[in-house]
Design a protein around this nucleic acid. Sequence first.
DNA 1: ATCTGTGATGCGTGATCACACATAAAACTA
DNA 2: TAGTTTTATGTGTGATCACGCATCACAGAT
Lengths: 237, 237
Amino acid sequence: MDKLSPVDLSTLHERVYSRLREAISQGDFVPGEVLTIRTVAASLGTSSMPVRESLRRLVAEKALVQLANRSIAVAPFDLALFGELIRIRMAIESMATRYAAQKRTPELISRLTELNERMKAAVHDKDVEALLDSNKTFHFTIYAAAEMPQLFEIIQGLWLRTGPYLRAAYRSVPGAERHFLDGTRVHARVIQALEAGNAQRAGANIALDIGFTARRFGPMIAQLYGKPDESAQTTVA
Amino acid sequence: MDKLSPVDLSTLHERVYSRLREAISQGDFVPGEVLTIRTVAASLGTSSMPVRESLRRLVAEKALVQLANRSIAVAPFDLALFGELIRIRMAIESMATRYAAQKRTPELISRLTELNERMKAAVHDKDVEALLDSNKTFHFTIYAAAEMPQLFEIIQGLWLRTGPYLRAAYRSVPGAERHFLDGTRVHARVIQALEAGNAQRAGANIALDIGFTARRFGPMIAQLYGKPDESAQTTVA
DNA sequence: ATCTGTGATGCGTGATCACACATAAAACTA
DNA sequence: TAGTTTTATGTGTGATCACGCATCACAGAT
């Protein structure tokens, strides 16, 4: 009687959480959009209880923010905050890369080169979604190799907060693929440094990768999703 | 008509959250202890609803863990995890210190020297509680000076997870004050480096401070709170 | 024309309940 | 007596409801 595959025994609020997290991560919501419990519950076909807990968890992870009204909204874009997060990401992700360099294996190198090839192909095909996915996978493959689960989760939290903006920018900037052609070159240098066991150079290039894309798309994001006053300033200036 | 001070408009689950967080941070619970919703609710005089949300938030912040049974417990001590958190703390907090060095002011230097004097006095008085508080305040005064709120909150999260163990160790190790005599000396070097604007040296000394205390008390914690198998291994070895 | 009180509506918050599952004590069988 | 089944207790989960607060539109007053 072992014909039965194991049933999904996750709780409802876990599934709701995953769905919401995925949606936020992919930039499906516009920054600042208010999420009401009842509405989300209705559209997901559940009661409000699981939605409440999911929203509160996402607020704790700072993917969502709680307004003074006590309503919950997608984190609005803030250029200063974005800049700080990028600086933190540069420091933390290059640290993870340095650790990964110490634990490198031939398998890691070959997997990374393969992922970078896939990314080049996505650039050629102008397939934005595949591009973003291969880029993300490339980075997280390195961070996983560091074998520091806590650090890995911190990085995941940071991607959850910066990812949506970058995805939105990529999608709306015409010819954004060109930028990633340079990205694959930086990735190649990362692979090279990892293979040589040069932790410093590998980490520096990861930081370069992050900082470069942020500088390239940051102002674009501010224009897309900036607060009224910010965009007003931009328009005036 | 400005005689009226603003009333407290926090929600119940926020207050419950604060209470629990404070209790965890001070090591009032023993690692691994199971917290049942109904029990906590009863002892706090509320219904289960605010407790549920607080517990879930603390799980999201990894101060508590969710067991396979779905019950929620205080995070048990795990030496490998503790070691990783310390390594992360060394990297991140020294980074924050380097940023603080760039934004140093005379007021910061004088406040830090004052805090360090208070810490010396606590060592002399063998006042463990005052010792821990002045130490924590010293560190966070530096991190606040970096003016990177997101980084500050990440560090707070890391202290929430390593703090309880260290506090417990300090309290149970006889003559733990002696260790902090060395701590004040390291702190003095941090102040010196900050005053001189030597970001690298300031950061390195903060890392030294963290790593040193962790190495000093880590094994002690393992013996106090380690899992049965771990402590058995320790006893055998 | 501007400001202010009033009502309606929608939402978050917290209490309560029914249910399912886990654990362990108790009863039963071999 | 040892192993197995049954029962009982307790706990998390999710649904539902009552309440209070925030927001907005509208009407009346200044």
